[in-house]
Design a binder for these strands. Structure first.
Length: 291
DNA sequence: AGCGGGACCTGTGGGC
DNA sequence: TGCCCACAGGTCCCGC
């Protein structure tokens, strides 16, 4: 569920709560929620949280060494190995961030707790909760991050593309929906926004990608950008689990044309929406509006 | 190459 | 009411 608009909303709501805080301790309640190639969690202690950004479906928390430690640290001296410079977090389906008061007990699905010290000296706890436990926190240096195939091969940001840029990326005979979901083609699109953008562009998700004309690819790119922007403006879509870092739900699920509406009436033509399986995913299509 | 299917997880909802 | 199973979703990995 957290796709580009939801991760963007998480980042925007998390930023004012954690930027400028210092990490004082980390409790890992589920080891497998850490990316195995990352640095150990102890290396986070003492670092400050700087910029909070998004790339594709990843939330990125930049880390800064405190000024005092900077001055004291000679290269390769004391204190052991490398320091992480960022946290890369993939929420997958049910990952979520919430800031709790100091001393709060873990929740049923809390996987990692970051103990924080705010600039004003008060304490807080950043919970990484994840019901399905597919989410991943990567404690990284730039070098470690670049060693992650998923990161290195991420495609362009859909909202930063020119409409004419999509067409050349839609090569081959795979279903066009499969390409929209492929993070090396575009970064950040998941099942919801693939289905919604294909409906808006009037394109059948099952069509081979290479069969799209340049004009169709361009209208698909514009439709995708529209749907992503509209969703961000409404703080994303909440299907069941998704919440932003304030615990609030999004509203864009009320604007869906097709996602989750199989068997219901098409909002555009009144016909019956069909449910199919495309690229291994549940896919809703209006046979009258999409060709 | 690209597809399907299983694995990873847990909660929900439909059918009986 | 209760049980079972399908399903949901993103990514990786395997085999065809």
């Amino acid at each position: 569920m957290p796709e580009l608009p939801e991760v963007e909303t998480v980042v925007r709501t998390l930023r004012p709560q954690v930027q400028g805080c210092r990490i004082t301790a980390v409790d890992v309640l589920r080891e497998r929620s850490l990316h195995p190639s990352g640095l150990p969690p102890e290396t986070l202690v003492g670092l400050g949280i700087g910029a909070v950004r998004r790339r594709g479906k990843l939330a990125l928390l930049e880390l800064e060494a405190p000024a005092a430690a900077c001055a004291a640290a000679a290269p390769d001296a004391g204190q052991g190995g490398p320091r992480p410079s960022l946290l890369a977090v993939h929420l997958r389906m049910t990952g979520r961030f919430m800031v709790h008061a100091e001393g709060s007990a873990p929740l049923r699905h809390t996987r990692i707790i970051f103990h924080l010290r705010r600039p004003d000296g008060t304490g807080a706890q950043l919970f990484f909760d994840d019901v399905r436990a597919f989410g991943l926190v990567f404690i990284a240096t730039p070098e470690l991050l670049d060693g992650w195939d998923f990161w290195r091969s991420l495609g362009p940001e859909p909202l930063e593309m020119r409409p004419a840029d999509l067409g050349p990326r839609l090569r081959g005979r795979r279903a066009v929906k499969a390409l929209l979901l492929d993070q090396t083609v575009l970064a950040g699109v998941g099942n919801i926004y693939a289905d919604e953008s294909l409906f808006r562009a009037g394109i059948d998700p099952r069509r081979p990608a290479q069969s799209l004309t340049a004009a169709e690819a361009e209208s698909l790119c514009l439709a995708l950008q529209d749907v992503l922007r509209e969703s961000i403006a409404q703080c994303g879509s909440s299907i069941r689990d998704y919440r932003d870092a304030n615990g609030d739900v999004g509203a864009f699920q009320n604007s869906f044309f097709v996602y989750g509406r199989g068997g219901q009436a098409c909002r555009r033509c009144g016909g019956r929406l069909e449910k199919h399986r495309v690229a291994g995913r549940g896919t809703v299509i209006c046979p009258h509006c999409q060709h």
